[in-house]
Amino acid sequence: MSETLLKVENLEVYYGVIRALKGISFEVKKGEIVSLIGANGAGKTTTLHTITGLIRPKNGSVFYKGKDITKTPAHKIVSEGLVHVPEGRRIFQSLSVYDNLLMGAYTRKDKSGIEETMQEVFRDFPRLEERKKQLAGTLSGGEQQMLAMGRALLADPELIVLDEPSMGLSPLLVSEIFEIVKSFKEAGKTVLLVEQNAKKAMSISDRVYVLETGSITMSGDASELINDPSIKKAYLGEA
């Protein structure tokens, strides 16, 4: 059995008096793609924000490679090897594509390593190389998502958490994005994927957790859950 990379235990998060996460637990093992699916407002983004330190849980813990990172400041998470591609891409609009990518490598000191990763990213995303001098705000939605993913790769992460990377993209681009996520795994990275597009997410995942109003209601191997009647009904749009 492979090593557990991320372990979330009894995570409970409040926004004021609203209990957004009601004590959830799950784990991601090295080399896996794990999906967290759920309806709008289920708490998916909240979960990712808590993992990378943007919000603090009231109770519970987050362990990365066995180390308790629950109280680690957000800016110290990425150098642990855990990178978060946020919902809505959040690229730096007034910086060039190239400078956005460099931002991804902000905490890295190895110049030659950064340059190497940059070339890899340009190889995987040739469109970013063509547009490297362009201001990121002028990219199309799909290109911006690729930039957000490329920027994450520049951190040379072991675990990538992705928050709805296919949001707002045309069907063709959605497929392309999922191919890219699959390629992360092939490149030896581990992925925690949050998606509304449950069908596509499950088709590339090893395991799935279903989040409903702050609680995990179901979990299991993607290949099994994809045939589960209640999942089909609620998330796959099938009767």
Partner: peptide, 10 residues
């Protein structure tokens, strides 16, 4: 531009 995104960059 985006304080949270900057935090995520480290």
């Amino acid at each position: 531009e985006d304080r949270d995104a900057a935090l995520l960059m480290g």
